[in-house]
């Protein structure tokens, strides 16, 4: 199957991989544990739980930088 490079370098639909999620939650939980202001109203005490909820609601001011081609996603229109 021949895929032309220009066509193949389509951006990945932006959804975090489980590694990225873990890394973001981890970084945010560390900030919260060290006293950073929490961005949500919650009863939770565990910084990890708080970070998880923040990510769910899309409020964490952290994202990932993707630099490599490993995130190229092949649409089926690219393959046929």
């Amino acid at each position: 199957m021949i895929v032309t490079v220009s066509k193949a370098k389509k951006a990945f639909p932006f959804k975090y991989t489980r590694f990225e999620r873990a890394r973001i939650i981890g970084a945010r939980a560390l900030q919260i544990a060290m006293g950073a202001p929490v961005l949500i109203e919650t009863d939770k005490k565990d910084p990890l739980e708080i970070a998880r909820e923040e990510l769910e609601r899309g409020l964490i001011p952290i994202t990932v930088k993707r630099k490599r081609d490993s995130f190229v996603w092949l649409e089926h229109s690219d393959l046929f």
Partner: peptide
């Protein structure tokens, strides 16, 4: 895995 993720600040 997690070690391959590079974090940046998301500014609004």
């Amino acid at each position: 895995g997690t070690g391959d993720v590079e974090l940046i600040a998301r500014l609004r």
